[in-house]
Design a protein around this nucleic acid. Structure first.
Length: 585
RNA sequence: GCGCCAGUAGCUCAGCUGGAUAGAGUACUCGGCUACGAACCGAGCGGUCAGGAGUUCGAAUCUCUUCUGGCGCACCA
């Protein structure tokens, strides 16, 4: 519609330019927007205001001139000048009715488009280290990533959803060592657990399972384990050196094979947990991509070779550095440590390169604490000859959690956190998904757990779902009264829908595709959730002021068609948000 | 100290590439069920858009600056 109006204006402006009333050679951007105030019509254009300066004329005079040469159009009933020189378009309400048959015909597909034309994009999200269960902080990334994926898919992207599993590296070693020490503790309660180990109860569970399956296979004497290990922080030492010492000791005591058994047991147990939680949250992936598999494939070596070949690597103090400052990063970054091990950064370079080579553009959804990481990854891609524009990072701010009015710190290490699973059990997956996605991602979010739990009925989601359930309820009653719904009849009677509530509801339906497109292109699911609330508002208001089931059969069928179209749009929108649309509540 | 993100109604948040009188929800105050489901509707109250300066026909939106908050600034991941 915007395009349509825009072309009408374009024609008019060109006509004015030919007549010399407007300066030729000026090609202003025609900007059409929906009005906020219905008294300003349906669409407004500020073109006369922007032309005022180059034309050196009063904007209202320009507006009048443009209107005078504006081609007539069946969809436009009236055009007005308002305020300083806005051109307001009033659409013919009857022409708006066409959206209704269109919704009913297209059903679940209504609102979708193929603007992206099948372009391949990978959305990588959550990707929390498998060192513990997901907590509510991860929930936001999960809900956001899943919804952005759905939105992109709805406008024609071929979306690949991926979870990058950090199954290599020091954190995993700390986890494996933590499990082993808990295992040893079951035999020797005097063993002091390191302050920097993973303290969550799930570590105890994994240790207990190992004890059952392997009995004493991994046994070691406490004194041998701690012999010559640097002191821990609480007793005046350094917690990092202490845990690193223990990791080495674990590997030495257990041997490669047994250490790997414990490591893999911890990894698979936690990964299974994460996967289950996400599935219950309605979040699924096309691939769980293992960091270790990158190493096994030699992809990291390949990437490093490529970087070296680019001439942007150098050696300093025994380590290999990537000269990322050449590409706008704050400082150069280590890729290979002086001990010969590659850094996490090296894995990430390889991972991103690998993804691009698979033909996907990249959308990474990261916690905002990783924002400083963006320039170096892009720098590496650029150095290797890839286009850094193919990688887009969406940062999600942390949800600050409040419980009993107090702020809670989320820490996997300390084991003090509210898990995503607990949240689901308390308020349900639908409410949680909706809640997370109501705010835009880069906005800080306060998550009041008590409110979410105790007043879950006030969650705005129920308002939207209720609108859907009400339509279903009307349809049930219709059947109970022995009446039937005849869409074909209703579609012939659309001109009977002239009430103010009906006009504005239809107007709202007309905006769905546009909102969906915006939400997808801007990666902003909240735009969709706000729209759905507005649609529900229009419906509830209509419901309260007019009867749908009545003796006037023609009017009744017309109204039934309208509310069923509304229902369809509600379903389509909620589906994209990963939320159910129940028939009764 | 440097960098990124933010500051809008008592609270939680929208406000689309600068547009008309800054909007919702919630809280609070009224009013509406012998009614297709009241998990609803209608009305009201509530703002120096953190402060200041600038850009222009026009600024919550753009620029600069100050203040406040979150997060980053590893041979951790």
């Amino acid at each position: 519609m915007k395009k349509h109006l825009s072309s009408l204006l374009q024609q008019s402006i060109e006509a004015q330019q030919e007549q010399g009333l407007l300066p030729a050679g000026v090609h202003p951007l025609i900007n059409i927007e929906r009005t906020r105030d219905p008294s300003h019509g349906d669409f407004a254009c500020n073109i006369a205001l922007t032309l005022a300066k180059p034309a050196k004329k009063n904007p209202r005079i320009i507006a009048q001139a443009i209107i005078d040469t504006l081609p007539t159009d069946s969809m436009v009933s009236r055009v007005e000048i308002a305020g300083p020189g806005f051109i307001n378009f009033f659409l013919d309400p009857l022409s708006q009715h066409a959206i209704i048959p269109s919704i009913l015909q297209q059903g679940q597909k209504f609102g979708q488009s193929n603007i992206a034309n099948g372009k391949k994009v990978q959305v990588e999200f959550v990707s929390a280290n498998p060192t513990g269960p997901l907590h509510v902080g991860h929930g936001r990334g999960a809900a956001y990533g899943a919804t952005v994926s759905n939105l992109l898919s709805a406008i024609g992207y071929q979306v690949h959803r991926e979870y990058y599993v950090n199954d290599a590296g020091r954190q995993m070693d700390i986890l494996a060592t933590s499990v082993w020490l808990r295992y040893l503790q079951t035999n020797d309660a005097s063993l002091t657990f390191p302050s920097n180990g993973y303290k969550g109860s799930y570590v105890l569970d994994i240790a207990a399972t190992l004890r059952q399956s392997y009995t004493d296979t991994f046994h070691a004497n406490t004194s041998d384990v701690f012999n010559d290990i640097p002191l821990d922080e609480p007793v005046g030492g350094d917690k990092e050196r202490h845990i690193d010492g223990l990791i080495l000791r674990a590997k030495a005591c257990l041997g490669e094979k047994n250490y790997r058994i414990i490591f893999d047991a911890a990894l698979s147990s936690i990964l299974l947990d994460i996967r289950g939680d996400l599935e219950e949250f309605g979040v699924t992936y096309d691939d769980w991509f293992s960091e270790r598999s990158l190493m096994d494939k030699g992809a990291i070596d390949t990437a490093i070779t490529k970087l070296k070949a680019s001439g942007h690597m150098y050696q300093k103090e025994g380590a290999w550095w990537f000269k990322s400052t050449l590409f706008g990063d704050e400082k150069d970054r280590v890729v290979i440590r002086d001990n010969g091990q590659t850094t996490y950064f090296a894995s990430d370079i390889a991972y991103h390169l690998h993804t691009l080579e698979r033909g996907y553009d990249i959308i990474d959804i990261w916690g905002s604490d990783h924002h400083g990481y963006v320039p170096r990854v892009k720098a590496a891609l650029q150095a290797m000859g890839a286009d850094p524009e193919r990688m887009k990072v969406l940062l999600v701010q942390f949800a600050v959690l409040y419980k009993d009015g107090e702020k809670m710190q989320m820490s996997t290490r300390s084991g003090e956190f509210v898990t995503l699973r607990e949240l689901q059990q308390e308020i349900g997956s639908d409410a949680a998904r909706y809640f997370y996605v109501m705010r835009k991602a880069e906005q800080h979010m306060d998550f009041d757990l008590d409110l979410a739990k105790s007043q879950s009925n006030e969650n705005p989601l129920y308002y939207v779902q209720y609108a859907h359930a009400r339509v279903c309820s009307v349809m049930r009653l219709l059947a109970e009264r022995g009446l039937s719904y005849q869409p074909d009849e209703g579609l012939k009677q659309l001109e009977k829908l002239t009430q103010a509530h009906e006009v504005s509801l239809i107007n709202c339906l007309n905006q769905y595709s546009e909102k969906l497109l915006n939400a997808a292109q801007q990666y902003e699911p909240h735009q969709l959730s706000h729209y759905l609330r507005e649609l529900a508002t229009q419906f509830h208001s209509y419901y309260n002021s007019h009867k749908f089931i009545s003796d006037d059969k023609a009017l009744m069928q017309a109204r039934l068609v309208l509310i069923n179209a509304t229902k369809q749009v509600l379903v389509n929108g909620l589906t994209l948000l990963g939320v159910n649309a129940p028939e009764s509540m």
